[in-house]
C-alpha cells in the first residue's frame, strides 16, 4: 500500500489519482495487482505502508506544526530512514529540510541538511508554470526522464541542500536551484508530477515500480 500523508495541507485528490493511474498502468501491463493508494493521517498506517508520499501546499511553519500535532513526524522519519520508497512533493520536499525563510521560527523535519530560501530579484513570484528540469542523475524515480524535460511548478521558496550530492535535478529561475533531491529510497521534488502530464505520470509510474521492487526484491 502506498500511503499519501494527509495533514490538512491542500488538495490531495490529484496526487492520489495520479498514483492510482500510474499503479494501474504499471501493474496492468504485467497482470499484477496494483498497490492500493491510501490517503491517511493515521501514523500507524504510515508506519505500515510499503511506500510513503509526503505532498502538500501551504506554508512551511503551519505544515510542520500540523505534522507534529498529528504525530506524523516520527513515522515519516522512520519511513525516510528505512528502505521503503519515499516521495516528497512541493512543500513535501521543503519540509524535509531544517529551516525556511517562509517561517523563520519553525523547524522542519531536518532529515536533509540545508534550508529553504525565497526567490529574489527581478522575477515574478510565485514561480508558476512549466519549467525545465536539468541533469537528472541516476535515481530510479527519474528513469527515462531527459534533461530539459518540462515539469509544472508553483512555489515562492526553494530548497538549498548543504550537501550538493543529494541534488537530483536543477532548474533555472533567477537562480539555478535544486528542483529535486534523490538518494537511496528517497526522491523529493519541488515540481508537481501529478500535474506534469506525461513526464509527471512517468515519474509516478517509476515510483510505483520502485515500491513494488522494494517490497518484493527480484534477483
Amino acid at each position: 500500500m502506498i500511503a499519501v500523508i494527509d495533514y490538512g495541507a491542500g488538495n490531495l485528490a490529484s496526487v492520489r489519482k495520479g498514483l492510482e493511474v500510474a499503479a494501474q498502468r504499471v501493474c496492468g501491463a504485467v497482470g499484477e495487482l496494483a498497490p492500493a493508494v491510501t490517503v491517511t493521517s493515521d501514523p500507524d498506517v504510515v508506519g505500515q505502508a510499503a511506500s510513503v508520499v509526503l505532498p502538500g501546499v501551504g506554508s512551511f511553519g503551519d505544515a510542520a506544526e500540523q505534522l507534529r500535532s498529528r504525530k506524523l513526524e516520527r513515522p515519516i522519519a522512520e519511513a525516510f530512514m528505512s528502505d521503503r520508497p519515499f516521495l516528497g512533493i512541493c512543500l513535501g520536499l521543503q519540509l524535509l529540510f531544517e529551516t525556511s525563510e517562509e517561517s523563520p521560527d519553525a523547524r522542519g523535519l531536518a532529515l536533509v541538511a540545508g534550508s529553504v530560501k525565497r526567490f529574489e530579484g527581478d522575477i515574478k513570484i510565485p514561480h508558476m508554470g512549466w519549467n525545465q528540469i536539468e541533469g537528472p542523475k541516476g535515481h530510479p524515480v527519474l528513469s527515462g526522464v531527459d534533461s530539459g524535460a518540462y515539469a509544472y511548478f508553483v512555489h515562492s521558496y526553494y530548497a538549498a541542500p548543504s550537501d550538493e550530492s543529494v541534488v537530483a535535478t536543477e532548474t533555472e529561475y533567477g537562480v539555478r536551484f535544486c528542483s529535486s533531491v534523490g538518494f537511496g529510497n528517497v526522491f523529493a521534488c519541488q515540481f508537481h508530477p501529478e500535474k506534469s502530464q506525461k513526464i509527471g505520470l512517468r515519474i509516478l509510474e517509476n515510483f510505483v515500480r520502485f515500491t513494488i521492487n522494494a517490497a518484493h526484491p527480484r534477483d
Binding site: 491542500g10 488538495n11 485528490a13 490529484s14 495520479g18 508537481h192 501529478e194 500535474k195 506534469s196 502530464q197
Partner: peptide, 25 residues
Amino acid sequence: FIPFTVGGGIRTVDDMRLMLEAGAD
C-alpha cells in the same frame, strides 16, 4: 494531469473549498 482553474459563480470560501476538494488546482 495538467493544472486547471474553475471560475464563475464562486462567491465564498466554501465555494472555493468545494472546487479545490473536487480536484481543481
